[in-house]
């Protein structure tokens, strides 16, 4: 078995303008995903929106700067993640197609294998 991080990206504006009805359907789809994946879901969370983000990095003199906002300014924001356990990539691909973000045109997921340090 191996671990995969499923990073959920999307256009935050589109998420912000979703109606209660749309959120209900959206959450139901996530519940269906979790039900199907079962024990393969190690962790999974929705993240607060990008304006709540804080970033840390050092400048040339090695001083740590704290800044308001995401590390990378992009149109698509990281909105949540799942950490999954699966036998191979095909298993993750087939599970991830259940995620509602994969079916909306403004969003999608990125799947990254997690390094196995044995």
């Amino acid at each position: 078995m191996a671990r995969y991080m499923v990073l959920i990206y999307g256009d935050a504006q589109q998420w912000d303008t979703m109606t209660d009805e749309q959120w209900k359907a959206h959450n139901a789809a996530h519940a269906a995903f979790v039900a199907k994946a079962g024990a393969q879901v190690i962790d999974g969370q929705q993240l607060e929106s990008v304006p709540t983000a804080t970033s840390l990095r050092s400048d040339a003199l090695g001083r740590i700067n704290t800044t308001d906002g995401p590390f990378l300014e992009t149109k698509e924001a990281l909105g949540g993640y799942y950490l999954l356990e699966a036998a191979d990539l095909d298993e993750v691909l087939s599970l991830a197609t259940l995620l509602p973000e994969v079916h909306a045109t403004h969003s999608g997921v990125e799947i990254r294998p997690v390094v196995d340090h044995g």
């Binding site: 191996a2 699966a86 036998a87 191979d88 990539l89 095909d90 087939s94 799947i111 294998p113």
Partner: peptide, 14 residues
Amino acid sequence: AAARIPYRIPDPDQ
């Protein structure tokens, strides 16, 4: 190897 792309025939639905 790293992403574990499997060495097998895809499932019937794929």
